[in-house]
Simulated scan of single mutants.
Amino acid sequence: MSARTVYLICYDICCPRRLRKVHRFLLGYKTGGQKSFYECWLTRQELQAVRAHLAELIDETEDRVHIFQLDPRMKPDCFGIAETMAVNAPFIVI
């Protein structure tokens, strides 16, 4: 089994139709986040697939997507009702 790395995927999509497509696509990979910011634990192959599919979904002249690799050793700062996700918690990518 390939090792997973945590990424923060953020997007700003101008067209509502493309926005819905990107949102629905990333729901299959996210383990946490909100609105247009998602934490995704991805293998190298999944990251390549996500990048390729997002490139097909967006209009490169109007939209933007950022993919940041995060250090899983960092402890998140949580405020209000925010909760951290257990790194070892089971999850499945369908």
Rank of each mutant, 00 (worst) to 15 (best):
R73H: 10
Q48H: 06
D59W: 02
V93L: 15
A52T: 09
L70V: 04
I92Q: 15
I81F: 08
A52P: 00
T84A: 12
P90G: 05
D71I: 03
L47N: 01
I81Q: 14
V50N: 00
I67E: 00
D77A: 12
Q69T: 06
E46N: 04
T84E: 14
E83F: 09
M74H: 08
D63P: 00
C78R: 13
E56W: 06
D63E: 01
P76L: 03
V93M: 14
E60G: 08
L57T: 00
F79V: 12
D63N: 03
D77L: 13
P72N: 04
H66R: 11
R64D: 08
L54S: 03
R51W: 02
D77Q: 13
E62V: 02
L70P: 00
A89L: 13
D77S: 12
A86W: 10
Q45V: 07
M85I: 15
Q48T: 10
L57M: 03
A55F: 04
E56A: 07
Q69I: 08
D63F: 01
V65N: 00
T84Y: 07
E83Y: 08
N88W: 13
L54P: 01
I58V: 12
E60F: 06
V87G: 14
M85F: 12
I67W: 00
A82K: 12
E56H: 11
A82D: 14
N88E: 15
V93I: 15
R51P: 00
I58M: 04
M74Q: 12
I92K: 13
M74A: 09
G80S: 03
C78A: 08
H53N: 03
A55H: 06
A49L: 07
P72G: 03
D77G: 10
A89F: 11
K75E: 14
E56V: 06
Q45T: 10
V50C: 00
E46S: 00
D59T: 04
A82M: 10
Q69G: 03
P72M: 06
Q48K: 10
T61M: 06
P76Y: 04
M85K: 14
N88S: 13
A52R: 10
T84H: 07
R73E: 13
P90S: 11
F79Q: 09
I94T: 15
L70G: 01
V65L: 05
M74F: 09
M85V: 15
D59A: 05
P72A: 07
